[in-house]
Design a binder for these strands. Structure first.
Length: 565
RNA sequence: GUUCCCGUAGUUCAAUGGAUAGAACAGGACUCUUCUAAGGUCUUGAUGUAGGUUCGAUUCCUACCGGGAACACCA
């Protein structure tokens, strides 16, 4: 609200100077400078209006600053650089915000971005692993990003439902069952699938057998196949469920291709009659608008079976019938991007309800290895589980050696491993590929999840020490100068809102790193718990406020906070 | 070939059209008798090329160079 206050005052000042702002294409901004030494807020107003005012930016800045009345919370106004006006906020504001953060506690960071814009119900689809195949690191990436976005949307004022869409029918299932029937050594269907997929490519005979199995899966005529199918599906889904538990996800809805396929096929049939789809070379296709760079896509293949596109259409309908959303968010790999644009075009033509069309696609990059694109069709995939286990092992080795008091429990190692992996995914823009380097993922220093967890746990332990020492936090006695950490903590809700607007968790991740670094620096330079220091109660309060921001921020990233480290 | 994404320190990533392009890792120099050294302090080092728009461009536009993806019956 300080921002709005400043904007109003600046417009007023411009008015006093006879500079018209209404209906002007040029707009000024009020924002936080990149560097704290440049103040708490800054505006470029003088640079924007200099030409119009017929004077140099610095001269105009001086004039505007001269016209500004005394603004609440503003302690100092400076002109700097080419003509920026910098505002320094009063000390009382920061100590008040420390108190406000502690009062708000878990709710600090909540905002009304969605509720204000009338978006009250949001469904978020992510992860989408396929039964009978391995849950690999690509699913880990989708899950991490999706879970975080779901949480961010939730604290931004919407009811959120989590959905997972899974391919329980299709050739991949037949490949896995074939592998099982061959007596392929292995413990689960993910391994049988790899064997079946390899055989399908290499042997004509195996290919025929797999196609035959596929038909039996659909027709359900073979009791033995039915039994294996049921077992494999259940095993897979149970495996996924325990993975979701480890990762901290709980889905509200599960959708399956076996149920969306008939719905989609029916929609395409109806669309064919309306001229939305057309027949071509024995298949039913949707002609994408070439001018908009859209491709033509097959929805029903020449054998009369619905493709992924048709199933996805069925999914849209199924989702909306299950939960009347205001917005549907779909998180997938970015190789689907162009295809999704075609799908959206088809959705737009098929459905009439404007709500059902409110679909936002969030594509994410690939988790890449030096060996190239991951593919579960061949061997050489990295399972989500093995990545977690390897990371965990590396953490144990790093910390567990030496004196036994420092040895960590399995629970903590697990939390730190999950934090390390999730942070490495969420620290960058989600549309970018992540170059996964095994040795670097194991490094826990600096820009990492464990760094954030460590700073948080440290704050918690200091707070407990203060409580034991009988120091009660207070907000009325503090050093004259506000510390840097105080000057950024109150910005957290703005970061969350911005992150929600962009559907990009990495803004929160980056912010938490900055805040942690400032706190660690504060910790190194200030004795927080000190019985004979009059400022100690305030420092304890500040530490608590920091801990709250960290906890809330890490929660939005889906990163757990260990008891101790 | 067409369309879409992307080129930032040696490496992995940041930067709502703004000030001196930020971190981290790696390299160099310090720092535990003191609340957790998985920490802190100092230091070396970057916008693919050529134009354009702008008071101002890593950001927007055009061309080129380089990487990735999609492009009809897989998902």
């Amino acid at each position: 609200m300080i921002r709005q206050l400043l904007e109003r005052n600046i417009i007023q000042a411009l008015g006093n100077l006879g500079i018209e702002t209404i209906g002007d294409a040029a707009t000024f901004t009020v924002e936080h400078p990149e560097e704290l030494s440049h103040g708490d807020y800054m505006t470029n107003v003088a640079l924007v209006y200099a030409r119009k005012a017929g004077m140099s930016p610095r001269a105009l800045a001086e004039k505007i600053a001269g016209q500004l009345a005394q603004i609440n919370h503003v302690k100092k106004v400076e002109i700097a650089g080419p003509g920026f006006i910098n505002f320094f906020i009063s000390r009382e504001f920061f100590s008040q915000s420390v108190s406000d953060i502690i009062s708000a506690d878990k709710k600090f960071g909540h905002n009304e971005l969605y509720s204000k814009s009338g978006v009250k119900k949001v469904i978020v689809e992510y992860t989408d692993p396929n039964p009978f195949k391995e849950f690999h690191i690509g699913h880990l990436m989708s899950n991490t990003i999706g879970e975080s976005i779901a949480r961010i949307i939730h604290v931004s004022g919407a009811e959120v439902k989590r959905a997972c869409y899974q391919g329980d029918v299709g050739l991949h299932v037949a490949k896995a069952i074939w592998g099982y029937l061959q007596g392929t050594p292995g413990a689960h269907f993910g391994e049988y699938y790899v064997a079946g997929a390899a055989a399908y490519d290499e042997s004509e005979e195996a290919k025929k057998e797999i196609i035959a199995i596929n038909k039996k899966i659909y027709s359900k005529e073979d009791p033995k196949i039915n039994e294996i199918y049921a077992k494999g599906r259940e095993d897979s889904l149970n495996g996924f469920e325990s993975m979701y538990k480890r990762l901290g996800t709980k889905f509200d809805y599960y959708f399956f291709e076996s149920e969306t396929a008939p719905i989609g096929a029916k929609l395409v049939e109806e669309g064919l009659n309306k001229g939305i789809f057309e027949k071509s070379e024995g298949a039913i296709v949707f002609k994408g608008d070439e001018d908009r760079g859209l491709h033509t896509r097959v929805f029903i293949n020449s054998e009369g079976l619905p493709t992924y596109e048709a199933k996805e259409l069925g999914l849209v309908k199924k989702k909306f019938e299950t939960y009347h959303y205001d917005l549907s968010v779909v998180i997938t790999g970015n190789e689907i991007r162009d295809y999704f644009r075609v799908l959206m075009d088809a959705v737009d033509k098929i459905f009439t309800d404007s709500h059902i069309k409110k679909i936002q696609h969030i594509p994410h990059g690939m988790l890449r290895l030096s060996t190239g694109k991951m593919s579960s069709r061949k061997g050489g995939i990295i399972s989500g589980e093995s990545l977690i286990e390897d990371t965990k092992k590396a953490i144990m080795e790093k910390v567990g050696t030496g004196d036994s008091a420092k040895k960590m429990s399995d629970t903590i190692a697990e939390e730190v491993a999950i934090g390390a992996i999730k942070y490495s995914i969420l620290r960058q823009g989600s549309d970018e590929d992540i170059i996964y380097d095994v040795t670097k993922s194991v490094s826990l220093e600096g820009d990492s999840g464990p760094y954030l967890q460590y700073a948080t746990v440290r704050a918690k332990s200091i707070r407990e020490k203060a409580a034991a020492a009988g120091i009660v936090k207070k907000f009325n006695s503090y050093p004259d100068e506000a510390s840097d950490i105080e000057r950024v903590l109150y910005r957290f809700p703005e970061i969350v809102e911005y992150s929600a607007r962009k559907c990009e968790p990495h803004y929160i991740a980056t912010y938490l790193i900055v805040v942690s670094a400032l706190f660690n620096n504060y910790y190194a330079n200030n004795k927080i718990v000190a019985a004979d220091d009059e400022f100690s109660p305030y420092r304890v309060a500040l530490t608590h406020a920091f801990e709250i921001v960290m906890r809330n921020g890490l929660t939005l990233l889906g990163i757990p906070v260990p008891e101790r480290m």
